[in-house]
Deep mutational scan, measured.
Amino acid sequence: MGFKLLSKLLVYLTASIMAIASPLAFSVDSSGEYPTVSEIPVGEVRLYQIADGVWSHIATQSFDGAVYPSNGLIVRDGDELLLIDTAWGAKNTAALLAEIEKQIGLPVTRAVSTHFHDDRVGGVDVLRAAGVATYASPSTRRLAEVEGNEIPTHSLEGLSSSGDAVRFGPVELFYPGAAHSTDNLIVYVPSASVLYGGCAIYELSRTSAGNVADADLAEWPTSIERIQQHYPEAQFVIPGHGLPGGLDLLKHTTNVVKAHTNRSVVE
C-alpha cells in the first residue's frame, strides 16, 4: 500500500471513529477524501466538511520552486461564519470567499490569524475590503508590521502568557507558548472536538522541520505538551499544512522538532 493511500485511509478511519463516538456532533463529509496538494491548482481553494458547521479550507501556493498546501478553518456561528487564517495570499483568499459563498452561503463576518507569517495573514486586506472584521493577538499584529505583512485590524486580548485561553464565538483560542513562531495560536472547536494546530503542528508525513527561522526550538516541545494537557479530548487535529489526523500529530511534531534540534547540535 502506497504512503499517500495509507495517509488518506488514516484520515478516513479517524473521521469514521469520530462519527461513531459522537453521532450528534459529527456529520463528516462523505463526498470524498481530504484534498491534497496535487489536486488543488494554485489560485483555487477546496472546502472539506469535518463536522456539522465545521470545515477546513485548503489552498496551495508556490514557494521556492515548489507547491505547498495550506489549511485553515471555518466555523459556523449562528447565521454567520468565523474564518481562521487566510488562504495564503490575496488571490487565494478572494477564491476562498467565493467558494464559501458557493458552498455554504453564509457571510464571513470575523477572521482570526493564528500567527504573523504570510500563509496566515496574506489576504487580510481582501477580507477587510469584503467587510470582514480581522483579528490577531497584539504580538501577531506587531510582528506582521515588522515583517511588512498585512496586519489584522483588531487585537485579541488575554493571550499574552503561555497557557492563556479565551473564548471567541464558537471557538476557544489558546496560546501554548512559542513553537513554530513566538505568537502562534491554537484554535479548538469544543462542539466538535476539532483542534486546529496551525503551523505549530505537523502532518504525519512530514519528517523535516522546514521553516524554523522564527521558531523557538527549545520551547516548542513544552508548548505541545500544554496543548495535549489542555485538549486531551480532541479527536480531529488539523495541521497548518497537509493531512489531518488525531492527537498523534502532536507527538510526531515533537519528535521531528527534537530530531532537528539534535542534528543542529551535532553539526
Rank of each mutant, 00 (worst) to 15 (best):
D64P: 14
H117V: 00
L6G: 10
L81P: 02
T261H: 15
A111V: 07
V212T: 12
L156F: 11
S7K: 14
I20Q: 10
T153Q: 15
R206H: 14
L204C: 04
V146E: 11
G169P: 04
Y135E: 00
R263C: 14
V67L: 08
N262D: 10
A98W: 12
Y135N: 02
G105C: 15
E157W: 14
L83Q: 04
L47I: 08
W88H: 00
L195M: 11
H115I: 00
G197A: 09
A259P: 06
G131A: 10
G148T: 10
L250T: 03
Q61D: 06
S56N: 11
L96A: 09
D52V: 09
G65D: 07
G148I: 04
T182H: 08
R128E: 10
Y175W: 09
S223Y: 02
I40P: 13
A87N: 04
M18W: 06
S181Q: 00
A218D: 10
T153Y: 15
I104W: 02
P176L: 02
L96P: 02
A144C: 11
L127R: 01
S56W: 08
A179L: 02
S162K: 13
R128N: 15
D118S: 08
D214S: 13
L243V: 10
L97S: 02
S22Y: 15
A215E: 09
A200R: 03
T14N: 05
E80Q: 13
S155A: 12
E145K: 14
V189I: 06
K91F: 11
S30L: 08
W220R: 02
V266Q: 12
L143Q: 11
L250M: 08
A95L: 11
N71H: 01
E219K: 10
L106W: 12
G78L: 10
G169W: 03
M18D: 05
D79C: 13
A165E: 13
G163L: 07
L9A: 07
K102E: 09
F3W: 07
P190K: 05
K91A: 13
G210E: 13
L5S: 13
E172M: 12
R76P: 04
A218N: 11
A66K: 10
A98L: 12
G158H: 15
R141E: 02
S162I: 06
V108Q: 01
G78F: 10
H115D: 00
V67G: 09
L47H: 03
D52H: 06
T153K: 10
A234V: 08
I17H: 14
A179P: 02
S38D: 06
H115R: 01
V132K: 03
T14R: 08
D216R: 12
F26Y: 08
T153F: 15
N92S: 12
F63E: 14
W220V: 02
S181K: 01
L250Y: 08
E33F: 13
G32Y: 15
H260Y: 11
P152H: 03
G131L: 05
N149V: 13
Q235G: 07
S160G: 13
F3L: 07
S223F: 02
S139E: 09
V42R: 12
G122D: 14
T60H: 11
F236A: 07
I84R: 00
N262C: 07
G210S: 14
V212D: 10
G43K: 10
A215R: 11
H180S: 00
I58F: 13
V37Q: 10
V146Q: 10
